[in-house]
Design a protein around this nucleic acid. Structure first.
Length: 575
DNA sequence: AATAATTGCGCG
DNA sequence: AAAGCGCGCAATTATT
C-alpha cells in the first residue's frame, strides 16, 4: 500500500493480461525481453504493489477498480490505450506506422467512459462497446511497439514523461471517482431553498421561478407566454418591441424593457434548477459523495473531460456544498494564470517570465508598462492565446506582441501552421489532429482558377478557425501537461503519508480513502484534497512542493513561477 | 418514436 | 460588455 518515492532508474515492467479464467503476469526487462511469466486465478491475482514496478495494462479503467477494492493502491502504471492515442499521432515519433496499423487500440474519444462502479475486476468486462485487447500476446506486442516508438522518437525523455503523467492521471481518475467529492446535502438544499424556494412537488415550479415567470408575462402582457422555448420567447419579445436576434443573456441585457430583468432572473433560476437542482442532488450526491466519471485525455488538447453529473461545470454558487467530513478539512488550490506562465516557459520568454514573477502575472504586465490596467492585461493575454482579432482584445494584442515577441512568436507560429493545414505539438509531444479531409477540400476548392469569391471566403474562414485552434492547442495542451505533472507528484507525496487510525478490518474500497488524505477533485488548474485535519499543513506543503516539482520537471531551470492560490477550509467556497 | 441538431449556459 | 480556445448537459425543435 505504501508508494515508494524511490526513483526507479530501471523500472520493472509487469504486464497484466487475461487468458481464460486466469490473469497472466509477464515481466519484461529493459531490452523488452520476457524474463518471467506467471499465471494466477483471477479472483485473487493481486497481492501487493512493489516499489519500482510499473504495471502495464490495456486500460486503467478496466484493471484498477478491482485492485482498489482489495483495497490497494497502485504506484505506477502504463495505460496502453492512452499511450497509444498519444504516440500514434505524435509528431515526435519518427515511425508510427506500426502503431497506426494496430487499430484495435483506437477507441473513439467520446465512448471511452467506462462504468467504474464494479466491485470486482471483471464485472466491467464486456461493458465496453469498443474494448481494447486484453490477451497476453497482444498486450506484449503493443507494449513493444510503444516502447520502440518512444525510443526511436526525437525526444524520448519528453514522451516518456508524457506517457507516465497520462497514466498517473488515469490512476487518479479512478481513485477520485472511488473517493468522491465530499458533498453536504443540507448545504446544497439550503442554497436551493434560498435561491428557488422550497422544493416543489413533481411537475410544479418552485415559488421564485413562478414569481419571475409571472413578472415576465405581465411585462410582456401575455399571460401564456412560453419562456422555455427559444423561438416562442423570441416572438413574444418581438411583439413588445424587443428586436433581439437571440435570447442569450448578453444580448437581452442590452435592451431596456421591464420584461428583461425578470427574464434574466428566470433564466438564472431555471438553469440552476435543471442543471443542479433537487433532481441532481438525488441522482448524484445522495450518499454524501459526488462521484463524477473523469475521462483523462478526453479532450484533444490532453485536458480531461468528464461524463455524468456535469463534474466540470459545478457552479461556483454550489461550492459551499463541497464540505469536509467531521475531523477532516479541505486543501483547495488553484494556479494563478497557468496558461500564460506555461507559454512564457515554452517560449523561453524572459520578459514575460519576469512579469510572471510573483503572484499576479497581469499586474506584472501592467508594471512593465505594456498596458494601463490589469483588466486590459487580462483581456490582451486571453486574446493572444485564443486568437482574438476584434474588439478590445484584438486592439490590445499588438502591444503584447511588441513586449513579448518570443511568447507571441510561439503562438503566432502555431496559428500559421494550423492555417496552412499542419499539425502542432505540446511541450511534451502531444500532437494536434491532422486537418480533416473536408477542411483540405475547402482549401483546395478555393485554390482552383474557377473558385468563386465565396469559396475563397469560406476557405479563409476555415483556415483562420483552424489557426485559432492550433494556436490555443500548444498552450492549453502544455498547461494540461503541467497540471498532470502536478497531480502525479502530489499523488506520490500523499501516498507517502501514513494512514490515520487503525481500522484494519475495513475491507471495502472506500476504506482506502477513509484513512488517508486524497485528491477529491481536479479541474484543469485547480485541485481539492480531502484530508484529516492533522495532515492539513503537511498536505498544503505537499501541494506547493508538487507545483514546484512540476515546474522543474517540465521546464528545468528556466525561471518561471507557478504561484498557487491555496486555502485550507471546511468548505470549498471561494474566500 | 427515436435520433440529430440547435440554443443557451455552466466551468477552465 | 462578451470577443477569441476547450468542454458537458438540458431543453427544445428538426429530421428521420
Amino acid at each position: 500500500m505504501t508508494i515508494s518515492g524511490a526513483a526507479a532508474s530501471a523500472p520493472r515492467w509487469r504486464l497484466v493480461a487475461r487468458e481464460g479464467e486466469d490473469v497472466v503476469i509477464t515481466t519484461v526487462d529493459a531490452d523488452l525481453d520476457v524474463t518471467h511469466v506467471q499465471r494466477r486465478p483471477r479472483e485473487r491475482w493481486w497481492d501487493a504493489d512493489d516499489a519500482g514496478t510499473r504495471w502495464v495494462w490495456s486500460e486503467t479503467n478496466r484493471w484498477y477498480p478491482g485492485i482498489l477494492a482489495t483495497p490497494s493502491l497502485v504506484a505506477r502504471c502504463h495505460d496502453l490505450r492512452l499511450a497509444h492515442a498519444i504516440l500514434r499521432r505524435s509528431a515526435l515519433v519518427a515511425d508510427a506506422d506500426a502503431l497506426r496499423a494496430a487499430t484495435q487500440w483506437d477507441v473513439a474519444g467520446k465512448e471511452e467512459a467506462q462504468p467504474l462502479t464494479a466491485p470486482t475486476l471483471f464485472d466491467v468486462e464486456g461493458t465496453s462497446p469498443a474494448g481494447v485487447p486484453d490477451d497476453p500476446e497482444e498486450v506484449l506486442a503493443e507494449f513493444r511497439r510503444q516502447q520502440l516508438a518512444i525510443r526511436g522518437s526525437s525526444n524520448a525523455a519528453r514522451l516518456r514523461l508524457l506517457v507516465a503523467a497520462e497514466s498517473a492521471g488515469a490512476l487518479l481518475a479512478v481513485e477520485m471517482h472511488s473517493a468522491g467529492v465530499p458533498w453536504d446535502r443540507r448545504t446544497h438544499e439550503r442554497i436551493l431553498e434560498e435561491t428557488l424556494g422550497t422544493r416543489p412537488s413533481p411537475g410544479e415550479q418552485p415559488e421564485r421561478v413562478r414569481e419571475a415567470a409571472q413578472r415576465v408575462r405581465a411585462a410582456l402582457q401575455d399571460p401564456s407566454a412560453n419562456l422555455d422555448s427559444q423561438p416562442k420567447l423570441l416572438r413574444s419579445l418581438h411583439r413588445v418591441g424587443i428586436s433581439a436576434e437571440s435570447t442569450n443573456r448578453w444580448e437581452l441585457a442590452e435592451y431596456d424593457h421591464p420584461a428583461i430583468a425578470p427574464l434574466l432572473v428566470y433564466k438564472k433560476l431555471t438553469r440552476l434548477m435543471s442543471a443542479n437542482g433537487w433532481g441532481w442532488l438525488d441522482e448524484w450526491a445522495a450518499d454524501g459523495r459526488f462521484r463524477p466519471v473523469y475521462v483523462p485525455g478526453g479532450v484533444v488538447t490532453g485536458r480531461w473531460a468528464s461524463s455524468g453529473g456535469g463534474a466540470l461545470q459545478i457552479p461556483r454558487q454550489l461550492r459551499p456544498a463541497v464540505r469536509a467530513d467531521p475531523g477532516w478539512t479541505l486543501v483547495v488550490a488553484d494556479v494563478a494564470q497557468l496558461e500564460p506562465r506555461v507559454l512564457a516557459a515554452m517560449a523561453s520568454d524572459d520578459a514575460l517570465a519576469g512579469a510572471a514573477r510573483g503572484q499576479d502575472l497581469y499586474e506584472g504586465i501592467v508594471n512593465s508598462g505594456v498596458v494601463r490596467t490589469r483588466q486590459e492585461a487580462k483581456i490582451a493575454v486571453l486574446g493572444a492565446m485564443y486568437g482574438a482579432t476584434t474588439g478590445d482584445s484584438g486592439r490590445l494584442v499588438p502591444a503584447l506582441r511588441r513586449a513579448y515577441p518570443r511568447a507571441m512568436g510561439l503562438v503566432d507560429a502555431a496559428a500559421t501552421t494550423g492555417e496552412q493545414g499542419g499539425v502542432v505539438s505540446t511541450w511534451l509531444g502531444r500532437t494536434s489532429p491532422r486537418a480533416t479531409a473536408q477542411w483540405r477540400d475547402v482549401q483546395a476548392a478555393a485554390a482552383l482558377p474557377e473558385a468563386t469569391e465565396s469559396d475563397r471566403t469560406r476557405a479563409r474562414r476555415a483556415a483562420r478557425d483552424r489557426g485559432r485552434f492550433t494556436r490555443n492547442f500548444v498552450v492549453q495542451g502544455t498547461a494540461a501537461e503541467w497540471a498532470l505533472a502536478w497531480l502525479a507528484d502530489l499523488r506520490g507525496r500523499l501516498a507517502a503519508l501514513p494512514p490515520v487510525g487503525a481500522n484494519d478490518a475495513a475491507r471495502n474500497s472506500a476504506a482506502v480513502f477513509e484513512r488517508r488524505p486524497h485528491l477529491a477533485f481536479f479541474l484543469h488548474d485547480e485541485i481539492i484534497v480531502h484530508t484529516p485535519v492533522v495532515y492539513a499543513d503537511a498536505v498544503a506543503d505537499a501541494v506547493r512542493q508538487a507545483a514546484d516539482g512540476a515546474a522543474r520537471l517540465l521546464f528545468g531551470r528556466f525561471p518561471i513561477d507557478f504561484p498557487l492560490d491555496l486555502r485550507v477550509a471546511q468548505d470549498a467556497a471561494k474566500s
